[in-house]
Measured scan of single mutants.
Amino acid sequence: KLPPGWEKRMFRSNGTVYYFNHITNASQFERPSG
């Protein structure tokens, strides 16, 4: 389970998975720990 605010997303163009935090508007490719 991801830390609060984080969700898994995917770029439609190339299928790359990334993680987005809707609380802080942060995004990263590494899976957030917590």
Rank of each mutant, 00 (worst) to 15 (best):
T16F: 09
F11G: 07
L2M: 06
P3V: 02
H22D: 05
F29T: 08
S27K: 14
N25V: 06
P3N: 00
A26H: 11
H22Q: 11
F20P: 02
E30S: 04
T24W: 10
P32I: 03
R9L: 07
P4W: 10
N14A: 11
F20E: 02
F29D: 06
P32R: 00
Y19M: 01
I23M: 10
S33V: 13
A26R: 13
N21L: 10
L2A: 01
R9H: 05
E30F: 05
Y19W: 10
F20L: 01
G5T: 00
R9M: 09
L2D: 15
T16K: 15
W6H: 02
R12V: 12
E7F: 08
R31N: 07
N21F: 08
G34P: 11
T24L: 04
W6S: 02
K1D: 15
F20V: 08
F29I: 12
P3M: 02
N21A: 02
W6M: 01
F20D: 01
F20I: 06
T24M: 01
G15I: 04
S27P: 00
Y18E: 01
H22A: 10
N25R: 11
K8S: 06
M10V: 13
S13Q: 11
V17Y: 12
N25H: 15
S33H: 10
N21M: 07
T16A: 14
S33N: 12
I23G: 03
G5F: 06
F20A: 04
W6K: 01
T16Y: 14
S33E: 11
F29R: 10
Q28M: 06
N25A: 07
R31K: 08
F20H: 09
H22G: 07
F29Q: 06
F11I: 14
Q28N: 03
G15A: 10
G34V: 11
E7S: 10
Y18W: 06
N21G: 02
E30M: 05
N25M: 13
E7N: 04
P3I: 01
G5R: 02
K1A: 15
M10Y: 14
L2H: 00
T16E: 12
N25G: 15
P4E: 09
F11A: 07
G15E: 07
M10G: 04
G34F: 14
S27F: 15
T16R: 14
Q28K: 04
K1W: 13
S13Y: 09
E30I: 06
S13T: 13
I23R: 05
M10R: 13
Q28T: 09
E7L: 09
S13H: 12
P3K: 01
K8Q: 12
F11Q: 09
A26T: 13
P4I: 09
T16V: 14
W6L: 01
P4D: 11
V17M: 05
H22I: 15
R9V: 06
G15M: 09
T16G: 09
E30P: 06
R9A: 02
I23A: 07
S27L: 15
V17T: 07
M10A: 08
N14H: 09
M10H: 10
H22K: 12
Y19G: 00
S13V: 11
N21E: 03
I23E: 12
P32V: 01
S27Y: 15
K8V: 15
R12W: 10
R31V: 09
T16N: 10
G15N: 09
P3W: 03
T24K: 03
F11K: 11
M10K: 08
M10P: 03
G34K: 08
G15F: 13
L2G: 05
Y19F: 07
E7H: 09
T24S: 05
F11D: 15
F29H: 07
Y18Q: 03
P32M: 02
F11L: 14
H22T: 15
E7P: 02
F29P: 05
M10I: 15
R12A: 14
I23F: 13
L2N: 01
P32A: 02
F29Y: 11
L2W: 03
N14F: 03
R12M: 13
N25S: 10
N14G: 09
V17P: 09
G34E: 13
E30D: 11
P3A: 06
R12S: 13
G34L: 12
R31T: 07
K1F: 11
K8M: 15
V17R: 04
K1T: 13
T24Q: 05
N14R: 10
W6P: 00
R31Y: 10
G5W: 04
P4S: 09
E7K: 08
S27V: 15
F29A: 10
R9I: 05
P4Y: 14
E7Y: 08
S27Q: 08
F20N: 00
R9K: 08
E30L: 08
P3C: 09
K1R: 12
